[in-house]
Write a protein that binds this DNA or RNA. Structure first.
Length: 897
RNA sequence: GGGCAGUUAGCUCAGUUGGCAGAGCAUCGCCCUUACAAGGCGAGGGCCACAGGUUCAAAUCCUGUACUGCCCACCA
């Protein structure tokens, strides 16, 4: 007997062993010179501060499935792992740690602070990597990257300098989103807009030169000190006479002009608005258009500046309250109403952002977007396609990207200013002297780059760019990017732009956007809600393969995943099923692999059937993965293993194992061995550990060495095993067996009780098939006697059914309630009658017969015949059965044997 | 205000080109049949959100409606 497996599958131990093996053996470290079509994926780099959450688990599982599958298909597969320095997030984490020591980053100073962050990374940055490993990811650890590595930093500087020289990076004063907590500018899409209840105040602005007033509406009275105009619509008759005159800013007493601009919505509020160019995005545009004064009254900490006069020093919240009160006191209050409006918040810390005018660096993404747009879908395919419109829309309406951040952790902007002459120098390395005046007093820009700037280079910076490395030649562009749709703009679109600009072609052949993982109620999982499912805890509890299979099985394209622990628990049963099926097979195999048998020659019907199914499953799973239909691939494997291999084939193989004919035994062993072997290969990309463990226990041909399943090719097609006719014949036999089981179950006959069975085959061919599979039927239907003879009269007191035209007759004996069988027959007949009405309605419909494809009509005709045949046979049986009932009189039970 | 999804069994979801509505879990029977009780064998359960339209034929295609969710957006 072959090596046996322990009775229960113990994932923890198995996972630890295989992980260690794969890491040490270098199994997943390819060489650019290896043969095969190149296949590469870059990991969406998790934040170095991060802890693995379920979204990562989904992402990494899907990538790993693709990589392992590609390896099986003979491709030269590279999966690069790495982490992102995550500027603001990481700085926040370290600042919080500092705060516990009662220190701020300013206490340390820039250099010491950055040193402290590196230390933090050395201490904790590996956690996320270990967690990636725990998922069984087949990444190439030898090529691990970090966005602040020397090589990647060099790439960042080169890109910055080149874009600057090309005029695609520029510096300018703009209104940007300012987070007063993180103390930095934020890009437009780093601001989350959130509808919340607010108020709309109406305030009177008195005319400077006499009586009259304009009532404006505002949601932000604290910005009144920064007003430099009042604006109305040019065609608004209500205010026609006022444009060009001057009004007085309430409380402050300054005079400002009334201007007209068609931007104003006459329907909203009072149709008049106050303009604060330094503290509102729209007002900033108005200010530019109309040459207004820019007056900053709120500082970088969210406090009122000296320019706000009496409110100086207050927080903006305090200022709002005081200003509202002062306006009321001055008799300028013209009412207020509740108004829900969107307020922007920092996506990192959720502080309300303040529009703020300052000098920042920008990438002219408006110029780079068209190429990224045009590449899809011609050069890069997007899955699911439904994201196309969103992608296009974003690129079509894109604004330039603010890339400077006023923090310390990140890539420092490679720009220097000459203290003496003011010259701006942008260079990859620090310049020694000013090229204009020769001064050595050069000061580097204090700011660092947006984290997404280095992420945008990830697909080629990780491959060694700007050096033309063998890796870059071999694996760029990458095969597919797998990521969540939530970073389509942050990351994906920007990688497209950078990849095209610097490498001349987009960085991926395909982009697969997967769903978000939500909880069972459909809520986004988050720490604050406490509804998260911790993947590591799940791995601990149910095993990695169960988690991976669950995530794969639910990854239907374009749909969110509602995950709950019960799901994972459910799929653990599947892992266990595989384990036990393998145990059974191993118990029945010799020590060495069974010698090959010609499977295209004569085999028994159930063997032909399972081999035929196996061929179909190989094709289906392969195609599903090619199409990124992960759920279909998982489902397909699940059904084949459980519902076909275990439920039928293993049971059918049992009599073969007990056969006295050594040839039958040998062939059964070979088919068992081979089928299990290929099932393991098919499931391996989804469930690497349990399949590896079983594979290792599977006997190999005498003299051969056991292999590593991770290096085995995808099971090749075996054309001789495609036998649809025999597969159909087997399905007929299954139908007969199910009919007997159903009769037993519905008549309350114990499944273990052996009964006699009479079969009236529909024709000679059926009779032959049934005869050849006598043992199968006897075993699976649990019979004490089987008679296959259309001429053999059936006893009146018998339960009956029709399966594929064959009458299935179970003579009733003992304490069976005959009324049950009558009810059963009537139910069955009613169903057939209904089917017949349906099918006849179609066939009697002249236009159906004439217009539907001939093939569909023929199918319906065939169906009608089958239904009629079954109905007639059952009706005849019912006649006889009622006679039996009458003969039995009040007894109501059969005593036929 | 625009855009995109979703609505199918009690729950969570599949359903590729229109052609007999499926799975898992849950429920209800019967079984400890020597791989597995984390199991086996059966059963019940659906106006495919609503209203129109196209078609021989619609869960599927078109139009509209109603909810639900997400994304984008400068009504202060």
């Amino acid at each position: 007997m072959a090596e046996t497996l322990p009775k229960g599958y113990e994932p923890q131990d198995v996972e630890r062993r295989w992980r260690g093996h794969w890491e040490k053996s270098g199994t997943f470290t390819p060489s650019p010179d290896d043969p095969g079509e190149p296949y590469s994926i870059v990991i969406p780099p998790p934040n170095v501060t991060g802890a693995l959450h379920i979204g990562h688990a989904l992402n990494l599982t899907l990538i790993d499935v693709l990589c392992r599958h590609a390896r099986q298909k003979g491709k030269n597969v590279l999966w690069i792992p790495g982490t992102d320095h995550a500027g603001i997030s990481t700085q926040n984490v370290v600042e919080r740690a500092l705060a516990k020591e009662g220190k701020s980053r300013k206490d340390l100073g820039r250099e010491a602070f950055v040193e402290r962050v590196w230390q933090w990374r050395a201490d904790y940055g590996h956690r996320i990597l270990e967690q990636i490993a725990a998922l069984g990811c087949s990444v190439d650890w030898s090529r691990l990257r970090f966005t602040l590595d020397d090589g990647l930093s060099a790439a960042v500087r080169k890109v910055f300098v080149q874009l600057y020289n090309e005029g695609l990076i520029y510096r300018g004063d703009y209104i940007i989103n300012w987070c007063s907590r993180c103390h930095t500018a934020l890009a437009d899409d780093e601001v989350e807009h959130e509808e919340q209840p607010g108020r709309l105040w109406k305030v009177a602005y008195k005319l400077a030169d006499g009586d009259g007033e304009i009532v404006i509406a505002t949601t932000r009275p604290e910005t009144i000190p920064g007003d430099t105009a009042v604006c109305v619509h040019p065609e608004d008759e209500r205010y026609a006479g006022l444009v060009g005159r001057r009004v007085v800013v309430p409380v402050l007493g300054r005079e400002i002009p009334v201007i007209a601009d068609s931007y104003v919505d006459r329907e909203f509020g009072t149709g008049a608005l106050k303009v604060t160019p330094s503290h509102d995005h729209n007002d900033w545009l108005l200010g530019q258009r109309h040459g207004l004064e820019f007056l900053q009254v709120i500082d970088e900490d969210g406090r009122m500046k000296a320019e706000s006069g009496p409110y100086a020093g207050l927080t903006k919240e305090e200022a709002r309250a005081k200003i509202v009160a002062d306006i009321a006191a001055a008799g300028l209050d013209r009412g207020e109403e509740p108004l829900a409006h969107a307020v922007g918040r920092c996506y990192r810390c959720h502080t309300v952002v303040e529009p703020h005018v300052s000098r920042q660096w920008f990438v002219a993404t408006t110029k780079m977007a068209p190429a990224a747009r045009a590449a899809v879908p011609e050069l890069t395919r997007l899955f699911p396609e439904t994201w196309l419109k969103t992608y296009y829309h974003w690129l079509d309406t894109i604004r330039d990207w603010c890339i400077s951040r006023q923090i310390w952790w990140g890539h420092r902007i490679p720009a220097w200013t000459c203290e003496r002459c003011g010259e701006l120098i942008v260079a990859e390395t620090a310049p020694g002297t000013c090229p204009r005046c020769g001064s050595t007093e050069l000061v580097q820009d204090e700011d660092v780059l947006d984290t997404w700037f280095s992420s945008a280079l990830w697909p080629f910076s990780t491959l060694g760019w700007p050096e033309m490395t063998p890796e870059l030649k071999r694996w760029y562009p990458t095969s597919v990017l797998v990521t969540g749709f939530d970073i389509l703009f942050f990351w994906v679109a920007r990688m497209m732009m950078m990849g095209q600009h610097f490498l001349g072609e987009p960085p991926f052949r395909d982009i697969y956007l997967h769903a978000l993982v939500r909880d069972a109620q459909g809520q986004k999982m988050s720490k604050s809600k406490g509804n998260g499912i911790d993947p590591l805890a799940m791995i601990e509890k149910y095993g990695c393969d169960a988690l991976r299979f669950t995530l794969t099985a639910f990854a239907a394209m374009g749909r969110d995943i509602r995950l709950s622990e019960e799901r994972i628990e459910g799929y653990r049963h599947f892992v266990n099923k595989l384990w036990n099926a393998a145990r059974f097979v191993l118990m029945n195999l010799p020590e060495s692999a069974p010698p090959p048998v010609d499977l295209s020659g004569p085999v028994s019907l159930h063997e032909a059937w399972i081999l035929d199914r196996l061929e179909a499953v190989k094709l289906d799973m392969d195609q599903a993965l090619e199409d990124y239909r992960f759920n279909d691939a998982a489902q397909c494997g699940y059904k084949f293993l459980w519902n076909e291999f275990c439920d039928w084939y293993l049971e059918l193989s049992k009599p073969d194992m007990a056969s006295e004919d050594p040839a039958v035994r040998a062939r059964a062993q070979y088919v068992l061995w081979l089928t299990l072997r290929e099932i393991l290969l098919l499931l391996h990309p989804i469930m690497p550990f349990v399949t590896a463990e079983i594979w290792a226990a599977l006997p190999v041909p005498a003299g051969a060495e056991p292999t590593d399943i991770a290096l085995e090719p995808y099971p090749p097609a075996r054309p001789g095993c495609v036998r649809p006719d025999e597969a159909r014949a087997m399905e007929f036999v299954q139908g007969v067996i199910v009919a007997v089981r159903t009769i037993k179950a519905e008549l309350g006959i114990s499944p273990t009780r052996r009964v006699r069975l009479l079969l009236h085959p529909g024709d000679e061919a059926q009779a032959r098939i049934l005869e050849q599979n006598r043992v199968c039927i006897e075993t699976l239907a649990r019979l004490e006697e089987l008679v296959i003879d259309a001429a053999m009269p059936a006893p009146k007191a018998a339960a009956s059914a029709v399966a594929g035209g064959c009458q299935v007759i179970v003579p009733l004996a003992g304490a069976v309630d005959l009324a049950d069988e009558l009810a059963r027959l009537d139910k069955e007949l009613a169903k057939l009658e209904k089917d017949m009405v349906d099918v006849n309605r179609k066939l009697r419909n002249e236009s159906f017969v004439s217009r539907a494809p001939a093939e569909v009509v023929a199918r319906e005709r065939e169906r009608a015949e089958k239904i009629t045949d079954a109905r007639d046979k059952l009706a005849a049986r019912r006649e006889l059965f009622t006679e039996a009932l009458a003969e039995n009189g009040e007894a109501g039970t059969a005593s036929a044997n």
